[in-house]
Design a protein around this nucleic acid. Structure first.
Lengths: 343, 343
DNA sequence: TTTTCCTCCCAAAGCGCTTTGGATATCCCT
DNA sequence: AGGGATATCCAAAGCGCTTTGGGAGGAAAA
């Protein structure tokens, strides 16, 4: 059923060389001949075999990533959205993705195998940690890659796209302080992830500038689920000296947090202020909360798109992009923040 | 840096044939020689080039799927969880995935290209609709595939794994009727997806058995987000003859629905009963809701695993599995269901 | 007219692997 | 000792594509 180059060439009475060149846009082929070839492709439904193409060119038109898989590992809501961004861009260039599942402890080996397999042209890495060893590994692979996020303490010379997490939570905290809040809590992501570390740092910095310190009892780290948001907030509210404002690392956490506040009979924006980081998940829009949420916003989807763009440009060597990008998150004020309640 | 078969063979003073056979477990190679080869592989870090392997064998060790991508298309929370299940199983057999993004209108063409590319050994299809044309397409591709879900009205002879949506919502509705509920609402998924259609059908069937009908004003179809759950429930409660029980097609919808109920000052399980379908998303556990949710449960992750198993067995021709599977969802009663309130 | 230069096309050599079809040596049996 | 198994190994032919290194023929330059 499926034709190959050879058959197509025979059919046209041309050599494989010419047909190949016609298809790949080489100049040394007659315009009329090229049209004949394209016509034949349309008629036969010819599709080049990518494996052969790759064997010949060394190019796979694909971006590889490893997905950590284990019985205990949760799927992440944010992952799908990021992937959508990657895909949106990739489809424009006819690129695809290779997802290689791997146990977390084998992750580095999986990257190596992925690179050696010839199945991919570039690698993508996320969920960065402090002193992440995977960066050095990827650098040793001599294959383009981009990191989403940044490590901490690692050398700085690797390609990344990150948002200014420190700045975002600094801004958010400063706003709260200006509104008169003194006891501010943080419901953060997992404590080993670098974005969590940075957000905490941003908060600490703003507090410090006003002579305040982080109260360890007011900082929780957890996976970013509704459940954890709920529990954290509940615990905060039960404390003798409860916070008057809370920062959340995700709208998913905020969801649970808001639930806890409501259940306690308190009002968001009046009794307690809330600012969340908004990854612009279509599933959960901060402006649709019963009390619209003040947020630091940066689209995860846009980040995915940008990374795909850079990766593809790197592979195709078309156009140069900055190697390191730090996006600033916008602080968008809505109704969930208000002046600190008077004692 | 990376060695190939030829170099490895030279290094060992063997032919490529022998090395290849040693690696692929053929019997006609001396045990001692095989050990030497394996040792050399360990030392050199040799990894076979998958493209070459595939060109030679026609086997890619990968499962293809297309991801619909468009500016307006939302990423789906459920997708990540399903993928985790697929991956968990795939990693055991050293399979990977090829994700091909595609505009929804090009989806069929993308499947064809994916199949022709030689990049994948099998295809996977989900988000089934009524009279889904993609099934006929996949059948024409002469490549193994499994459908997650079922179409409606299509021929029945294609491999699928589905849950008994009709049965699940039939059971749930019957329970509510037994508890005395007469006005039951449904917050369903998108109306064009076949699981939504079947769930509604199951509900209708149980109602009919008790001489009741679906009230169209009590059925909403939407994407399964918190926001939509909230809005639907809010609208239900505002109706003059509000329902006393509600079915939700997802715990994500239930999240919003519960919020609306609380906001109205009503109590789940007493003033209004709620049953949700639980895909067992780690992000959102029904037992952790402030009032634990009665659910129809079927793990999306398990479904992913099973589909991967079947696909891989189909590719490797190892072991036979049933071609069509219909899983029954468990009805798990928790505190969100109670007797219908007396007027 | 001869020479040079394009234009347009082709044959053939890989890319790195698997697999077919022997070869060679050893061993057992009659 | 001769013949057939048996155990090990190898050379070479692809898989379907790209790319190198020409080559024929006509147009432009000398």
């Amino acid at each position: 059923m499926a034709v190959n180059l050879k058959q197509l060439a025979e059919l046209l009475g041309l050599s494989q060389t010419t047909v190949s060149r016609a298809l790949n846009g080489f100049p040394e082929v007659n315009a009329e001949t090229r049209q004949r070839v394209l016509q034949a492709v349309r008629e036969t439904g010819y599709r080049p075999n990518r494996a052969a193409q790759r064997l010949a060119t060394g190019r796979a038109y694909s971006i590889g990533m490893v997905m950590p898989i284990a019985a205990g590992i949760d799927s992440d809501v944010h992952f799908g959205e990021f992937l959508a961004g990657l895909g949106e861009e990739a489809v424009k260039h006819d690129f695809h993705f290779v997802l290689n599942p791997s146990a977390p402890e084998d992750e580095e080996a999986t990257f190596q195998r992925l690179a050696a397999s010839g199945n991919v042209d570039a690698l993508f890495l996320a969920y960065m940690r402090a002193n992440d060893p995977r960066i050095a590994m990827l650098k040793s692979l001599s294959m383009p890659f981009v990191v989403h996020g940044r490590s901490i303490g690692e050398t700085r010379d690797y390609p990344f796209l990150d948002i200014d997490n420190t700045g975002a939570f600094y801004d958010a905290t400063r706003l709260l302080i200006q509104l008169g809040h003194q006891r501010i809590a943080l419901i953060n992501g997992p404590d080993y992830l670098s974005f969590s570390i940075r957000r905490r740092k941003g908060m600490a910095k703003a507090l410090a500038e006003h002579g305040l310190n982080i109260d360890e009892a007011l900082v929780h780290h957890s996976l970013m689920t509704d459940e954890h948001g709920y529990r954290s907030m509940q615990r905060f509210l039960q404390q003798p000296d409860a916070p008057t404002a809370v920062l959340c690392s995700s709208t998913v956490l905020a969801l649970g947090a808001v639930r806890a506040v409501n259940q306690a009979g308190m009002a968001i924006g009046r009794d307690i202020s809330l600012i969340a980081h908004d990854d612009v998940l279509p599933m959960l829009k901060p402006e649709n909360f019963s009390v619209p949420l003040t947020t630091t916003r940066s689209s995860l989807r846009a980040a995915g798109g940008r990374i795909a763009t850079r990766l593809i440009a790197g592979i195709l060597k078309s156009g140069a992009f900055p190697d390191q990008e730090l996006w600033r998150a916008e602080l968008i004020v809505r109704a969930s923040t208000g002046p600190a309640p008077q004692k």
